[in-house]
Design a protein around this nucleic acid. Structure first.
Lengths: 86, 86
DNA sequence: CTCCAATGTAAAAAATATTTGACACGAAGT
DNA sequence: ACTTCGTGTCAAATATTTTTTACATTGGAG
């Protein structure tokens, strides 16, 4: 029930900068190839740790690989104040 | 079985810059207070999405709030190997 | 002192991320 | 044709994150 709002360019980076296969990247960050596939296809977003590890491999700041795309105009909260008493 | 290698200064930020309570922060990023508590106490690291949301609230780059501290002698790769056969 | 807001803790359930073990497909290479 | 490699997919199992509920503590306000 949760959309994945995080995008990434792992696939491109894998080819461009550092020529490496899904399996190699997976090995370097210590996860399975499945995980890399899922993240590349954005089936879900990685854990913060994994994101850091990947950024480390590509020698790039995390935010240059992963980007957050809040809903349209994320207006969910901002205006809510009276959520006290339960 | 996985240590939390990610640290953060949410607590400090909550007080300093933007004066807000755990509950308020939780509301703004759309999670429960429990989650904030757990993350502040570093019982585990947040999802990448939540990390992005928090960074957004504090108007700071994600990496200024969360930092990655690889294990003491991690160095598991660096000296890449050829891992094939499976 | 009493009340309440803010924080800490805990445990079970729900949700999400990751693993494991297949199997399929196309592009090379032999 | 056969084999290998890189990729995509699927499903079930395990791990990790998040929710829900509930209760304890501390400090300030009244």
């Amino acid at each position: 029930m949760k959309k994945n709002l995080v995008k990434n360019n792992i696939r491109q980076l894998r080819f461009m900068k550092h020529e490496m296969t899904q399996q190699q990247l997976a090995d370097r960050v210590g996860v399975t190839r499945q995980t890399i596939v899922a993240i590349e296809k954005e089936k879900y977003s990685p854990s913060l740790e994994l994101a850091f590890l990947i950024a480390q491999v590509f020698e790039l700041p995390l935010e240059e690989i992963f980007s957050f795309h809040p809903q349209g105009t994320d207006s969910s909260q901002a205006t809510s104040l009276e959520e006290e008493g339960k």
